[in-house]
Write a protein that binds this DNA or RNA. Structure first.
Length: 783
DNA sequence: ACTAGAATCGTTTTT
DNA sequence: CGATTCTAGT
């Protein structure tokens, strides 16, 4: 059994124990993924079960994919039907078995944006004060209920206060709307699965007998509904393996209950418990920082994470003046490490608490011409034209989806406005027909203009025709049909604007995505495509082999590791976040979040923060995070900054870098003030009006008042005539709004440039709005 | 019905 | 600051 030799004693125990329930308490970096994959391989090799008899739940689809890949390397040709996230497994389960119940198997999955729209409708209908009962608050209240498996009736039995009366009304209406749209939200996927299993003994029997082994990863982050699901699926064989680490529980806000991990032995009294405490990932110094931090938490299992790796570099600490100089420090440090220690871009992770912090890093990275990967800005599916297209497709699959129909009923414009919509809604309610049917009827009546009716008739026909072709055509073919029939391209490009052409490009990209899906998916139907699209997460799309610096939130790093990690924005109000500083449980969760970040680092760790931060238009003073002060001074190395926080006032160790990072702030920045004469590459000569953070408002002689990023200005000494720059295919460019991109086409005549932007896709912009960026070859680390 | 400009508002993490 | 919603005017 050669594969078992690669494991340590505890890991091997965990792999070989297949007789009953098992709890693996796996500290950070202790090789839990390895244990899980080996265990599944072991089960298969020993013929304890077949692949279809194993239920394996991971935290992301990506993790599931990697696990499958690794097992496939050891045992080629295997297919695992039940390996994935709770949500994807449940979606599949419901699609297979919900036929005949309230929501049919053709349901669509509403994302949080869709749910917000739906919730807004509810609140409006109930005439609730939307200052007090905001869609966000009500949504999260209902989400909590669903995670606790309480349907409106269950909830009604538990409380009677005025607020809960309102919640009850909202919940009922919200559910009603979901039902009438034949839609489910994320929480429904879990809750309805549990209800289905509870109410259908035959189904429960079948599934629980089928799953001879149930394995759950990241058990510390499961919520009540998921827990119930685990119990149900494993109820027959009770051969359940869960892996978790209470110190890494960071999803309380979405219902995760750490206590479920804590009480596993009570739920399964005969359970074995195996602790994996040997860390293979990090240096001793990094573990010491992590362990010291976690000692401060009260609610946790005692543990002793250890490594026999030698000490390693001390943790780099940098206190910057502004957010921008913090970013600059990080990027220059990366340069230096690449130069001295042969690191590749992909070895670095820049981590932060909130997505808003990524901006500064992006800006500096762009300036420096360094490639990066921004994870968690899944902008693609948020683009208008893509959402429109998805809305069409949803209606095709599920004509009851009135939310989606409403979105596209007047796109392209068909003369359907508020008045017509009101009529349609009325008709739909009176006649008990869906909205699409109502549109069909109205279009053959005498109501409204003839032109509008003709166009409505066409729309209904196109959609219904697409629905009929569902069984015979692939997703891609249907998408193309609809785009052609509705002249969607023409609609986008008719305005003749650059934006329109860019949107058309995005449509092409979408078609490519659909076709790609067709080629790798077993099921190439439109339904399958829509289901797939709505359940992929940010991290699923991350490709780590690309040779780019990685930017992401602390939350998204779970399960990942990087040779060099930068933890940034370690300030009070950011981490612990201002919203999580009051309650002890919240605070402890923030500390765990910090712990998760620290334990991602393999070789080197840097912790940074800024004295002041520019957010939402104002600059605010910031204090160092209490978590940073919980790390012993003795394992920190202080890099230059303007001052030391009081907690470190004893430390004397200063580095020569100091001057480097201060220069940006004190010299260049300080020197730019109102009245200064400046030159901009494209706008020419002007005078500074105001300086706000990183943005400077300048009154240009030729171009008038514009706001530009400070870095693209230089103090002007003479009358440097601005040159017009020609862009060509392949040039890297920067745009104030869309940020970095690569030139695709350039039209001399109109000075329009087509750019594919990293985050936002294709756009057409005026050449004047672009600044050239150094190509990767040009920009070597400075010596 | 549609549009452009004004006003408002929110401060986190995500399947 | 920036995204979203509201409003007034065509």
């Amino acid at each position: 059994m050669s594969y078992l030799d690669e494991l340590n004693d505890e890991q091997r125990d965990a792999v070989k124990y297949c007789e009953g329930p098992l709890l693996i308490l796996a500290g950070a970096g202790s090789g839990k993924t390895r244990v899980l994959t080996f265990k599944i391989t072991h089960i298969l090799k020993q013929n304890y079960a077949r692949p279809s008899e194993i239920l394996a739940v991971t935290f992301t689809n990506k993790a599931a994919g990697e696990m499958k890949e690794r097992i496939l390397k050891m045992m080629p040709g295997i297919y695992f039907p039940s390996m994935g996230t709770f949500h994807s497994i449940c979606a599949r389960f419901l699609r297979d078995h919900m036929e005949g119940s309230a929501q049919s198997s053709r349901f669509v999955i509403y994302d949080s944006g869709d749910c917000r729209v739906l919730m807004r409708e509810c609140l409006k209908e109930l005439n609730l004060d939307d200052k007090v009962f905001t869609p966000e608050r009500m949504s999260s209240a209902i989400s909590r209920l669903k995670n606790k498996l309480l349907d409106p009736e269950d909830f009604a039995r538990t409380g009677i206060s005025y607020d809960s009366r309102i919640t009850y009304d909202v919940y009922c209406l919200y559910e009603e709307k979901l039902k009438s749209n034949n839609a489910l939200d994320f929480d429904d996927l879990l809750m309805k699965s549990v209800f289905l299993l509870r109410n259908n003994k035959e189904l429960l029997d079948r599934y629980s007998r089928m799953f001879k082994y149930v394995l759950i990863d990241e058990y510390q982050d499961i919520n009540h509904a998921q827990y119930e699901l685990v119990l149900l699926f494993s109820s027959f064989h009770r051969k359940i393996t869960v892996v978790g680490d209470d110190d890494q529980s960071i999803y309380r806000f979405r219902g995760a209950e750490m206590s479920l991990l804590m009480r596993f032995e009570e739920d399964f009294p005969q359970a074995r418990v195996i602790k994996l405490e040997r860390n293979y990932r990090s240096t001793k110094v990094i573990l010491e920082a992590a362990n010291n931090l976690m000692k401060k938490n009260r609610v946790r299992r005692e543990k002793n994470l250890w490594t026999d790796r030698k000490g390693g570099e001390k943790i780099g600490y940098f206190r910057a003046v502004t957010g921008r100089s913090e970013a600059r420090f990080v990027i220059l440090k990366i340069r230096e490490l690449m130069r001295n220690d042969n690191y590749n871009y992909r070895d670095f992770a820049i981590l932060y608490r909130t997505n808003a912090q990524s901006r500064l890093f992006e800006e500096v990275l762009i300036q420096e011409g360094m490639p990066y990967n921004l994870i968690g800005s899944l902008k693609y599916y948020e683009r208008k034209e893509i959402k429109d297209l998805l809305a069409y497709l949803r209606v095709v699959v599920n004509r009851q989806d009135s939310l989606s129909l409403r979105r596209i009923i007047n796109v392209p414009p068909r003369g359907v406005g508020d008045v017509t919509m009101k009529k349609l809604e009325h008709l739909s309610r009176e006649e008990h027909i869906d909205l699409l049917e109502a549109a069909g009827r109205l279009s053959s009546s005498k109501e409204g203009s003839a032109k509008m009716r003709a166009q409505l008739t066409h729309l209904v026909e196109v959609l219904e025709e697409a629905t009929r072709s569902l069984t015979v055509k692939t997703a891609g073919a249907i998408v193309e049909d609809i785009i052609d029939a509705l002249k969607y391209r023409e609609y986008l490009t008719s305005s003749g604007t650059a934006e329109g052409v860019a949107r058309e490009e995005n449509i092409n990209e979408f078609i490519t995505v659909v076709k790609e899906f067709e080629s790798f998916s077993v099921d190439a139907s439109l339904e399958a495509f829509l289901a797939h699209i709505s359940l992929i997460s940010d991290i699923d799309l991350w490709e780590d082999s690309e040779g780019r610096i990685n930017l992401m939130t602390f939350h998204l790093t779970k399960g990942l590791e990087f040779p060099v990690v930068f933890m940034t924005g370690l300030e009070e109000k950011l981490i612990p976040h201002i919203m999580s500083q009051e309650k002890e449980e919240d605070l402890e969760e923030e500390r765990r979040l910090c712990y998760v970040g620290i334990t991602r680092a393999m070789d080197r760790l840097f912790m940074t923060h800024a004295e002041e931060r520019f957010m939402r238009g104002v600059t605010e003073k910031r204090d160092v995070s209490r978590f940073l002060t919980e790390i012993p001074e003795s394992i920190l190395t202080l890099y230059g900054g303007t001052a030391l926080p009081s907690a470190f006032s004893q430390a004397k160790q200063w580095k020569s870098e100091r001057e480097d990072y201060c220069r940006d702030e004190t010299c260049e920045v300080e020197s730019l003030k109102r009245g200064d004469r400046v030159t901009h590459q494209f706008f020419g000569v002007g005078r500074v009006l105001t300086v706000t953070g990183d943005t400077v408002k300048v009154d240009f002689v030729d171009k008038g008042i514009k706001r530009v990023v400070r870095d693209y200005l230089s103090k002007s000494l003479g009358n440097n005539a601005p040159k017009r720059i020609r862009f060509q295919k392949g040039d890297r460019v920067y745009h104030a709004k869309w940020r970095s991109g690569v030139v695709c086409r350039s039209d001399e005549e109109s000075s329009l440039v087509m750019v594919i932007f990293t985050g936002t896709g294709t756009q057409f912009v005026q050449a004047e709005e672009l600044s050239p960026l150094p190509t990767l070859q040009d920009k070597r680390p400075p010596l």
